[in-house]
Nucleic acid binder design. Structure first.
Lengths: 331, 331
DNA sequence: TTGAAAGCGTTACCAG
DNA sequence: CTGGTAACGCTTTCAA
């Protein structure tokens, strides 16, 4: 049951430690015959290198942390899935870290990066994340930020053009004849949320329609709160843009309990384009984020970061996923 | 930018490495004055122990892998969240590993446990997981299995009494007057799925009703497939028990596109009791699994495993979450 | 191409 | 209670 170490393999193969090490880590530096012999013995013994010892000695590992606030949100779950796949394809082992929206935790994870000898880390935005702290603690600034507008050009980012996404949504509803189009920001605090909000304002202005912001009263659940607000409007909006799919679900569900149907009475459009939305009732129209690209590019940005390239800022385009929760405005 | 090591602290504090080490790891073994001095210096230098080096030397770490097939399934997402919390409360750092249902990956993660010097690991069932392999590779069998009936009594398990859950569902529907109650197994292959299926058969027999199994034709999507099957029944069932919430969502959505309403035309009950179901339309009635308990107990089982206690097999009871997707049968 | 030796950051044992 | 020393499993000079 004792673990086999590099020395066991060396002994069994009749070579020195260093040769075994090279056979694995720099195969070209060892004679073919020796290498094959060593590798065969190693396989027989069921040996594989210990990544921790390796990391310790080399001063670098292949452990890449992905720090997300809430894995329970399908957006982040999907992000985790695709990023894991991308990481593996590049030879990294992704470590998923869940902060539950706690800025302190985020900072902890970032600081622990260097003790894990991580080559770089990926942070997806927490609502309240304090980027100043993040940067201060960041290991050599080797952090890639996902889906978060960044002021500091020194940290590489991949984001989705939220403003364009909102435009897509507003245009879609406008073309359907809606003129009273409300926006439900949900939980605010992230930069993207602010972005979307701003973009909504501009889009409303551009179309010459009155902006209506649907916020839940403090302390009340999002779904009911937003719908309360909606019903309190003197002229009830005929369409709502939710700042993400989960909020759209909550709104539609609450609308249902108040006897309002979607899209009959109100059109609702989400933001994220989750697969789940296709199984919602009605099937949710949504602004789709290219989540897989987000993950893949984050990994690529990390790689160029360690290669010493200047930090990039990639902006991805969202697209409109028209399903069944929006329809023509019928007065 | 050079990393501070234990020696830097030792030098700065005018003591030896070993004293610093003890100040952190076995505080009682060092004089109070010395300890406080060392700790203060360490804090000033922003020093903290390197967990990798620690693990290497000690031969054990606090890294606990949680191996799940699909983080995109809210059940596993929720499990990950609660298990992370439980792990942290016990001083462990959870490493979330996503296998995408790949048995090979599962085995890889389990084997890599010992190179991470993990005290134990937690595996949530993959559909096709080959437990024989798992056990062979398992590091000293220090693996806890979640929500999976296990034949081998040597591996500790926490499971939910699926059979009882199904009984709850069938009883509920029966009491509502339904006599033709179908079961949609969804993707089969897990032990729990089999368990639920069997329990459905027994419950049907107990109530003297005819079992109807709604399977999707091979190659067709689950929702449409199941509904196709439903509609092909000569006497259409008035209620469906889905083997999990996601499948229930898909069924309800598909029912809607075929012009059938839930619960008006068909009552549907899910299995998992996800929060998401509360925001579905209609709000999903479901058999609730105590997910947080699952995670917490998995950690506890791991701890008793390393304490050398005999492997336990904890069975948790599900409960019925009555929401709005089921109603009285009206012929 | 291979071997020898030193060292990554820590801990455990043994002296004092 | 504290210091010294060896060791965890590996990599990387440097010689041979």
């Amino acid at each position: 049951m004792a673990e086999i170490s590099i020395d066991d393999v060396a002994d069994a193969a009749g070579v020195h430690r260093s040769t075994v090490s090279r056979a694995f880590s720099r195969p070209s530096a060892v004679r073919t015959a020796t290498r094959e012999h060593v590798l065969r013995i190693a396989a027989e013994l069921g040996y594989s290198m210990n990544p921790l010892a390796q990391a310790l000695r080399r001063g670098s590992s292949n452990l890449v942390p992905l720090i997300v606030p809430d894995i329970t949100n399908p957006f982040f779950a999907e992000l985790a899935r695709t990023t894991t796949a991308a990481a593996e394809a590049h030879g990294y082992q992704l470590m998923l870290c869940i902060t539950d929206g706690d800025t302190g935790q985020t900072a902890d994870y970032v600081t622990s990066m260097h003790s894990m000898f991580s080559p770089f880390g990926i942070v997806a935005p927490s609502t309240r994340v304090d980027l100043e702290a993040l940067r201060r603690y960041a290991f050599q600034n080797r952090v890639v930020v996902i889906d978060r507008v960044e002021d500091d050009p020194s940290v590489p980012t991949v984001t989705v053009d939220s403003a364009h996404g909102v435009d897509l949504a507003v245009d879609h509803l406008f073309e359907l004849g809606h003129r009273r189009i409300a926006y439900a920001p949900g939980i605010v605090g992230t930069y993207t949320a602010q972005d979307r909000w701003d973009a909504y304002g501009r889009a409303a202005e551009r179309h010459g329609i009155l902006p209506v912001i649907l916020e839940a009263a403090p302390g009340v659940e999002l779904g009911p709160g937003i719908v309360d607000h909606l019903l309190s409007e003197s002229v009830r909006p005929s369409a709502i843009i939710a700042s993400n799919d989960l909020i759209a679900f909550a709104i539609i569900s609450e609308l249902g309990t108040r006897g309002l149907t979607v899209p009959g009475d109100v059109s609702v459009i989400g933001f994220d384009g989750l697969d789940l939305g296709a199984h919602f009732n009605p099937r949710l129209t949504s602004v789709r984020q290219p989540i897989a690209d987000l993950g893949r590019i984050a990994i690529e940005l990390g790689e160029s970061l360690i290669a010493g390239a200047p930090p990039d800022h990639v902006v991805l385009e969202p697209s409109l996923l028209i399903r069944s929760s929006t329809q023509k405005f019928a007065s």
